[in-house]
Structures are given as structure tokens and as C-alpha cells.
Design a protein around this nucleic acid. Structure first.
Lengths: 224, 224, 224, 224
DNA sequence: AATGAATGAGTGTTCATTCAT
DNA sequence: AATGAATGAACACTCATTCAT
């Protein structure tokens, strides 16, 4: 029993305990393999109470997704100061992201693995959060592109500046790749002992920032 | 019925039909939601026959993972000529990868989503394949680093050459990020109509190659 | 909520509200499908209060049966003047009966359908009421039989008077048939738009009275 | 166990055993109170087999209704010779009906009590059968009316012949009353020891036939 | 080589009922 | 007079798996 069995608590508290238990169980067992029995026991309550408060397994899972998605975006938002330069914002955001995923592996599993593999409805729920993050990253890329030309960090040979074709689709793909890389690194960092959130963030920052910079300056890699 | 119900076929053929049906079902329904009944019916055989040949649901799933992992790595291997320059090899590998995942969404779902979310055993199975790919990418990165100095693609101001700290852990992280980005882009490309394998490959190549190049040249982004 | 949620009312009133809600719910959902939750909510009170006043689902249902049975017999009793001739009494009684069942479909459903299909105890409860009515009808038949001979309504060829075999069992069967026909017609009239209580009563009166009359006069249909 | 537990029997046989058990259980416990566990045990099989063959509780109940309704109508149909006079047909039909209901009390309970109190779908299923019977009775009434005038069984004073107002609605009400009376008498006969099917039929025949006869001859009871 | 017949063990869900206040 | 919090026991239904042929 994960929670001390204290009786007669207000509904709001019990609900949080249930969500805690559910996130843990869903994250470790997976959505389908997690049984309501196990969740209830871990929460220290009877199954009917879980149903009374959370309605159904689907609703319970949705509630988990919403809570965890909110907490993750909140963590990132809090970690970033929107007044700072774009690269600094990206760096801070990545660090906040990797820190959160490292500290909440079950929640991250729910969002990243479980929610995306068990029905359109759940996937849509995370997709909303993900789009928020992708949009944020896209903003940073565009901001970086704008600031890249005047004082380009590397030798700009006066060549063609920013590619006019670096349109929406292009940027979307880049943001997608960056976010995807971050998601993968999160799992990798969690699974590899000795890799801190800071290191993961540094790795990705190195990988991405210079690449983006070069790209902005109109020197893309061109397929043969 | 997915397969015409022809009776009395050699075991090897029947097994492939079963694996086809299983990959499709696992890929679309998910491991737990897929029922042996559905798989047997889709394969056009009776359930006991599936058990006779494949033993159990777990074994059947493992067989699916092995077959699909083999097919994927084979596709990438075939697409790459190890004699060509590193960037060309990466480009060809990415194209082969995105092409394969686009043409075998169910198999890719089995490998990327299902196998990783349903037990350590299955995850280990794909991890082996993934490590193979990561190792390959790591080789490419190192090879690129070696070739980067003599004839650097961009203006090398004769600055410090390759970072001596670009050790194993660093490279591992980079390869991990690249592979992770590729995996995410595969899902994105599959889900976004109008994005071809070639475009996905180009996006990632742009994102990665220049970034790696800059990195090799000793101009990494440094955390504040 | 069916009832305005006024707090702190005397017990008797609350009990009636609960019985109202219960009759409605039992009548529409059926005994088993009706949940104490729904009844409590419809009554505008909390579930424990229902238990405090009515003890259990069984007791609540029994209370419903008693109240509705009492109301129905009272309605019939009030509609009949025991000083009038037998046929007039029957006519008035039928009219009162059909009127009541039309105006209280849920109560009628509780008595006629639910109580008879969910346990001997409940069935016995309605059986008591039914016997009262059957006894009343039996009286009327006997009274009619007595009055039939002196001034037979139709051409009495002076044939054998009342059948000496028209014993208790015989009369009981007739009363039973009449009451059963009435019950069925009640459901039919409720379900058939445009059929009034008066019409239902007339139909049955036509059907029954002449038949009874002929019977009294010793001209029964004889089996081959 | 009601059935000897013989293993491995053809599906058709098992299905009948299951329906036997289901009719008995539904008839005695009621639809909702009957548990699939009990039915399966009574049938001498495991629960999953019941589901494999009959799909769901609803489907199982529907199958019961259909089988019992078919058997009842078949029994009545078989008992009646459509070449004989109307009164003889009615007599034979009633006898067949009372005989069947006496011999299959559970089936009769399913049709008469359970099916009508648990959902529109089930009710519609029996309503079809009932309408068939009501239509048959209606035919008999009309046929009787036709044959009543020329050679009226009782003293026809040459008075007004058949009531021109004896329209469709009127006849429908009469048939409804007759069938309803029969249904009620069936329950009564079943519950009253010593009442045979023949006696029940005779009681109703006496009650109804003379009444109908008088009615045909234009001497209806008229409301005050 | 292949299958119709059958089940043990479990799932999500609901309900009548009580306790503490 | 009245309730929010909580549960034991059951139910319909499903599934991976095996047996007998």
C-alpha cells in the first residue's frame, strides 16, 4: 500500500491520491495491463470509490494525462524567461524539460508512451500539449532566424541570407525534429545512469543550435 | 479475411501468414488489445494452429518484433553503400529508413510503440536493433569528424580543430539524439499527409549535418 | 430533480416524497433496475435518509405496493355505490378502475408488473389487494345471479334456472377471468392512444355482462 | 446440475441445453435477477461457452423469447383445425393454450411476465407473437358474427341483427379482453391446485362465447 | 496438417448498504 | 433532521490457452 490508509478525507485529497496511484500504475504497467484493482489498492481505497470519483478507467486515464500534461508544460513555462535571447530560452526550456521528465518518469511514460498508444482520444489529449510545445519551439526558431542575420555568429560570406523558402512546412519539420530528439533523449537519459538533465540539455543544444544557425544563414545541406 | 483460406499449406508459409496477421493486428490494436482470436481469423486459420506454430501470445509477439526488426535493418543496410562519404551514407540511410517506415506502418508501430510499452523482454528485443543502428550512426559521426578537419565544408578559420572532449559519451548522446529525431519524424511524416520520405530525410539532414559539422569544428554552443 | 430541495421538512412529508420518487422509478425502470441512488436523487434527499426512513430497498418497495394498492382500492370503492343494482356497480367499478390506472401508470406498473415478478413476498402483497377485488366481483356475480331469475333480461324460455353446478370454483374462475380481462385491458388502453377509460369499461362490460347473464340462465356453452 | 455433464457435444445440442437452463432461470428468478453464472451452471457448461454461443445476456434472453413464443404458437396452431366451426376452433385453441402454459410454466413466465417488463426490445418480441394470436381470435370473432345471424343459437326474436357499430376498434377491444382473460386465467390455473387446462378453457369459453353471441345479436349492455 | 469444443482466471463496473459527523 | 465518505459482494463479459479428434 503506497499510501497510509487514513480514513475519511475530503474528496479533493483522495482524488489526488488516486491520480498519484493511477499515474504510477499506468506508467509502469501500461494502460491496458493496469487494473483498477491495483490502482485502488495502491491508492489505499476501495475500487467503488475510484469509480465514484473518477467515473471509469478511461476517464481516470484522461485525468492522469491532463494533470501530467499540465504539470509538464507548467514546469517548462516556469523555467523559461521570455525576455531573454532565443538560445537562452531554448536552453532553459530544455533543462526544465529534462529535469521534469527525470523526476517524473511515470508521468512521462503516461504522456509519451501510454497515451499515444491507446486510442485516438488519449492521443489527441497529449497532442494538444505537444502542439503547444512545438509552437513555442517554432517561435524560438523564427526569432533566432531573425536575429541571426545582422550579427551572424560565424563567417557569413555575404552569401544569400535566410532562405526565403524556409517556409512554414520547413520550420514545422525542424521543430518536430527538435522536440522528437528531446523526447528520445529524455528516455535515453532516464535509462542511462550518470546522465544528468543538464548534460542531456547540453547535448541537444549543441546538436541543434549550431545546425539551426547554419541553416538560417542559407547554407543548408543539399541532397545529391 | 485478410488471407484467402487455402487449406493444407507448408508450415513455413502458414507461419508467415500468421506473422503478417499478427503484425497488422498488434500494430493497429496494440499488444494487449489484440486478441489471438482476431489474429487467427485474419490469418485464416484456427486458433489452435497459431498456438501449435507460435506457442503463445508472447512468443508470437517476439517473433513479430524479430521479423520486423530484421526487415528494417536489412532495408537500411541495403540502402547504404559503405564506400561512399559519410554524409552520403547518412543521407541514404535516412531515406531508406523513412521509406521503410512509411511503407510498413504496422511493423513500425510494433517496433517503435508496442514493443517498448509492454514489458522489459520485448523492449530488450528492439533495443538490440536500435543499438545496431545507433552504433552505425556513431561510426558515421566519427568518420565525419575525421574527414571534417582536412577539407572542412565551410569557412574554417583555422580555429581549434575537433574538440578533444568529444568523447564517447558525447558522441553517444549525439547519435541518440539523431536516431530519436529520426524516429519522431517517421511518426510525424506518417501522420502528416503530403510529407514524403525524401522530405523527411532532407529536413533531418539539414538539421543534423550542419550542426554536427559546426560541432566538429570546435564551435559548440556553450551553456551560460 | 423532481422535487424542489427544501430542507428540514417533517418526516411524514419526506416519506411521501420518497414514495413518490420510488413509485415513479420502480414503475419506469423496474424493481431491479431501479437504483436507490436514482430514487434518492429524484426525491431530493440523500441516500442515507432514505434508509433511515424506509429501511431497505425491499421495505421501500413494499411500502410502495401498499400505498398504491390502497389508493387503487380506495378509488374503486369510492366510485361504487353499493346500494345500486349489480350491473351498475360493476360498471362504476370498472370505470373507476380504468380511470385510476390511466392516471397512475407508474403505480399500476408497480402493482401489475413489478410486484408480481420479483419475489413471493411482493406478489403476496398485491395478491391481498387482488383478492379483495375478486371477492367484490364475486359478490356482484352472485347478486346478479340471484336477480337474474325473477326478471331475466332476455327471453327465458322457462328452461332450467341457475345451474346448480355453478359452484364456488366456477364463480371464482369467472371472477378471475373478469378481473384478468380488466387488467389486460388497462394495459391495452394505456398503450393504445384514443382509448378512454369509459370505452375500455364499455368494451369489457359488453363482453362480460351478457355472457354472465346467459350463463346464469343455464345456457352455458358445452364442450364437445 | 440440471443436466448431466456430458462433454464434447455438438453445438446445436449445447445451445438447446443452454436455452433450457436460461428459460428455467429467467422464468423463476426474473430477467435481472438471473445471473449468467447460474444459467451456465444449470446448463452444465462454463460461462464463456454460453457467451461464445449466445453472445450476451440480452441475446440469450431474446433467443429464449423467440424459442418459447414459437413453441407456444406452434402448440396452439397444432391444436386447432381451421376447418371446424369458429366456436370449436376457439375451444380447441384455448385448450391447447392452457395445456401448454400449464406444462411450461417457466416459458410462460418468460413470455408473459419477464419479457414485458424489461425493455422495449423484449416487449416488442412478444408483442409480435401476441398480435398473431389476437389476430387469430379476431378472425374467429368475425367468423362467429357472420354465422351468428342466420341460425342464431338462442332465441332470436328477429330483433336488430349485428350491430353496425361493431367496428374494428370494438372487435379489437373484445379480442384483447379475451386474450387478456386467457392470460390471467393461465396464471390462475397454474397457481390454483386442482384446476385443469380443460376446466380453465371451459370457464373462459362459458364466459366469452355466450357474451359474444349476445353481442352479435345486437343486445349489448348499454351504459347508463 | 488442422480444428470444433471448452474453460480458469481475470476485467471493468455497479449497487445496496453503512459509518462518522 | 440530514449527509459526505466509503465499501463488500456481486455481475456481465473477455481472453489466452488447452483438449479430443
Amino acid at each position: 500500500m503506497g499510501t497510509v490508509k487514513t480514513k475519511r478525507m475530503p474528496r479533493a485529497v483522495r482524488e489526488q491520491q488516486m491520480l498519484d496511484a493511477a499515474v504510477r500504475t499506468f506508467g509502469q504497467r501500461g494502460y491496458m495491463a493496469a487494473s483498477m484493482d491495483e490502482i485502488a489498492e495502491l491508492a489505499g481505497v476501495s475500487k467503488p470509490l475510484v469509480y465514484l470519483y473518477l467515473n471509469s478507467k478511461e476517464d481516470l486515464f484522461t485525468a492522469c494525462i491532463r494533470r501530467e500534461a499540465g504539470a509538464l508544460t507548467e514546469a517548462v513555462r516556469t523555467g523559461v524567461d521570455r525576455e531573454l535571447p532565443a538560445d537562452r530560452q531554448l536552453w532553459d526550456g530544455l533543462r526544465a524539460f529534462f529535469t521534469y521528465t527525470a523526476e517524473h518518469p511515470d508521468g512521462w511514460s503516461v504522456l509519451h508512451l501510454q497515451a499515444r498508444t491507446h486510442g485516438e482520444g488519449f492521443a489527441a489529449e497529449v497532442a494538444a500539449m505537444r502542439e503547444e510545445i512545438v509552437a513555442f519551439v517554432t517561435q524560438l526558431i523564427v526569432a533566432a532566424a531573425r536575429s541571426a542575420l545582422p550579427h551572424s555568429r560565424t563567417c557569413s560570406r555575404g552569401g544569400t541570407p535566410i532562405d526565403p523558402d524556409l517556409g512554414e512546412g520547413e520550420v514545422a519539420g525542424l521543430a518536430e525534429a527538435l522536440v522528437g530528439a528531446a523526447e528520445s533523449l529524455a528516455a535515453w537519459a532516464n535509462a542511462t545512469p550518470g546522465v544528468t538533465a543538464r548534460q542531456a540539455a547540453a547535448t541537444l543544444m549543441n546538436f541543434a543550435w549550431a545546425g539551426l544557425g547554419n541553416l538560417m544563414e542559407g547554407r543548408p545541406w543539399s541532397p545529391p
